[in-house]
Design a protein around this nucleic acid. Structure first.
Length: 312
DNA sequence: AAGACGAAAGTGGTTGA
DNA sequence: TCAACAACTTTCGTCTT
């Protein structure tokens, strides 16, 4: 399988996935060949099928059939009728291909805009682009807005890149409702599960970002990391939302080091409610035996300098 | 008055029959 | 396909600082 080029972007960086029987372009995510598996597509819509195909442009399944089946340019030995027909098909082929390209260009611009609000590193933005492209080539955007799929792709990419943003954050940056982001995220990751795999996030992945949003000292941050680690060892984390655990750990750490933050403040940053923090807080304090340590610092107050830091 | 606490009812997703 | 279920949210009254 050497010398293969991606018909979409021309890159020679092509990968063969033996498990799924697909040939995948590493640069743009296009599935070039898929001989073994039939993922039955959603765009089959019986009555409306014919209409839909025309109205929505290229009937792109995973692997763009237009790129795979290049209509011959040799018109020899054809009747003039046939020739006309073939020229017609050619024209359509070109149109549909450029429509997809335009869509991807537009998406790329939009994605950059959203991502810039979240301080996401370039490599994650690129990953999100690739995920979006795969979604497009598999027809997963149909029935969804481009923005919501982008939001889902970006959320997925931040998780893959081990720098997860919360659903709240992605929702705010993209203007897509939080539930909607979650739904599309779940949908596209399920549909693309053979190409991308996403591990559950860990509370520790949120600590650095949250603690800096809360202006906590490095000492308090290290403390919260310790708490999270212990919680993990004691299996207090399974089935719980990782952001809630991170939030509670930060809250506890803030008390222990005399840098008290209110539950409200921590909840805001972590995108959970105070109730959730209280629940995790209780569990953590019970199991980790932190009661006496907390009592010592109960009078901890903020310095003026810290207050200043919060006002920007 | 602000923050913390906890009960109770509601939401949306997962799971297993 | 449906009901049971767990985690989380919303709302609200009460206690604490």
């Amino acid at each position: 399988m050497k010398g293969k080029k991606c018909p979409n972007c021309g890159s020679k960086d092509v990968e063969i996935n033996r498990k799924s029987g697909e040939v995948l372009c590493r640069s743009c995510g296009l599935v070039i060949e898929d001989n073994m598996i039939d993922h039955s597509q959603e765009w089959r819509n019986f009555e409306e099928e014919r209409e839909n195909r025309r109205r929505t442009g290229a009937p792109i399944t995973h692997g763009n059939p237009i790129d795979r089946t290049v209509i011959s340019t040799s018109y020899k030995n054809m009747s003039s009728n046939k020739r006309r027909m073939f020229r017609h098909l050619k024209k359509w082929q070109k149109r549909m291909a450029t429509a997809t390209e335009r869509n991807l260009t537009q998406a790329s611009i939009e994605l950059t805009r959203i991502a810039s609000q979240l301080n996401v590193p370039e490599r994650i933005i690129e990953d999100a682009k690739r995920i979006y492209q795969m979604a497009v080539y598999r027809g997963l955007v149909r029935g969804r807005s481009m923005e919501s799929v982008l939001a889902g792709a970006l959320y997925a990419a931040t998780r893959r890149g081990e720098l997860p943003r919360t659903l709240n954050e992605v929702s705010e940056a993209s203007g897509i409702g939080r539930k909607e982001v979650g739904r599309t995220y779940r949908f596209i990751t399920r549909e693309l599960s053979d190409m991308i795999n996403i591990l559950p996030t860990k509370p520790s992945q949120y600590i650095p970002r949250f603690s800096s949003s809360l202006n906590l000292s490095p000492k308090a941050r290290a403390e919260s990391m310790k708490i999270v680690k212990k919680a993990h060892e004691l299996e207090l984390t399974s089935g719980r939302g990782p952001t809630g655990i991170a939030a509670a750990a930060l809250y506890i750490a803030s008390l222990m080091h005399g840098e008290k933050r209110t539950q409200r403040e921590v909840a805001e940053v972590a995108g959970v409610t105070e109730v959730t923090i209280r629940n995790r807080y209780k569990e953590l304090v019970d199991v980790l035996d932190l009661n006496d340590k907390l009592k010592k610092n109960k009078r901890g107050r903020r310095s003026k300098k810290e207050m200043q830091g919060l006002n920007d």
